[in-house]
């Protein structure tokens, strides 16, 4: 019983962390329909960025994550432009060739990281890493609490941004009806590019969380293809609140399987859930934008 409670509590925290690393994809794939399988590779790249700053200047990883955010925003702008010019603009089977394109990009990022840093695991140092908070019989690592808090903040900020600001509402509108936006005199491509920039910028902070929660290695992105796509598809494409709920479901499921069946089954959980959702309820658990 205690073990189960432990697993659930850790699972919820882990789930919030998954939410934070998936929320960018929820915008880029969920709202913009870009088959961004390089999202996890960008995430790992951000972690290495945070690692460099932390290693050289001793700056807190979260601050480092914030520092690289503008860089990733620009990276996102450029990546979308390239994707738009080469695929969306030409029309037919953009999705299928797009996924091949992003796989290529992911591989390139992986190898460049390996060539620069080798295949060894890298980690960061901060006061909250390595210590735990004891409550009742439970030990909750502080790093998980940090991840939880930042993830919650990120989701709230992004949700508010999408619902309260003009640009945010334009992003939601472009996902629904591109032509309507054009009629209102807004360039939908500009809006999408901006949205993709935001989705990528968020990865700066998400990358910091990734390396705070556990050490990273260059090919870590492969495990996160399953997790991030599972969360976004399960959430119902493009739903921010759905993303966090779906992420918590995944986190708890992984955590429970981990404690009851062992770590060797863990990689399959997210993919099995993803496959299940795709096969049974492709519109996601929380409905799909119309």
């Amino acid at each position: 019983m205690d073990l189960l409670l432990d697993a659930v509590v850790i699972g919820v925290l882990l789930g919030c962390f998954y939410g934070a690393v998936s929320i960018g994809l929820s915008v880029s794939f969920g709202l913009l329909d870009v088959p961004h399988v390089a999202h996890p590779a960008f995430l790992v790249l951000a972690s290495y960025g945070v690692y460099i700053i932390n290693e050289h200047y001793g700056i807190d990883p979260l601050v480092a994550g914030l520092l690289i955010t503008p860089l990733f925003f620009v990276l996102g702008l450029v990546a979308y432009r390239l994707y738009y010019e080469t695929f969306e603009k030409r029309g037919t089977d953009a999705g299928v060739r797009g996924i091949a394109f992003f796989f290529g990009v992911a591989f390139i990022i992986e190898v460049l990281i390996i060539m620069q840093f080798g295949v060894d695991q890298r980690s960061v140092t901060a006061t909250y890493i390595g210590k735990s908070w004891r409550i009742a019989d439970m030990r909750i690592p502080y790093r998980m609490l940090v991840a939880f808090a930042v993830a919650a903040a990120l989701t709230i900020v992004l949700t508010l941004y999408l619902s309260r600001t003009f640009m945010g509402r334009a992003i939601r509108a472009v996902a629904q009806d591109q032509e309507a936006l054009r009629l209102m005199g807004v360039n939908p491509i500009k809006v999408k590019q901006w949205a993709f920039g935001i989705a990528t910028a968020v990865l700066g902070i998400a990358g910091a969380l990734l390396i705070i929660v556990a050490p990273v290695e260059p090919t870590l992105d492969r495990a996160y293809i399953g997790r991030t796509f599972c969360v976004v598809v399960m959430a119902g494409l493009g739903s921010m609140s759905g993303t966090i709920v779906a992420a918590i479901i995944l986190g708890v499921a992984e955590s429970i399987v981990l404690t009851s069946f062992g770590a060797s089954w863990a990689p399959a959980i997210s993919f099995a859930m993803l496959l299940g959702v795709l096969a049974v309820r492709p519109q996601g658990l929380f409905g799909r934008r119309s």
Binding site: P35, V37, D93, G95, V96, G98, I99, I225, G226, F229, V233, S264, W265, P267, A268, F271, A272, L274, L275, L278, A279, P282
Partner: peptide
């Protein structure tokens, strides 16, 4: 049940599930 990119993602999922098994 699925076409395009969803089919592709499903095939990745299938791979990892079998590998884990």
């Amino acid at each position: 049940r699925m076409q395009g990119i969803f089919f592709s993602i499903a095939t990745i999922a299938l791979t990892i599930i079998i590998e884990t098994t």
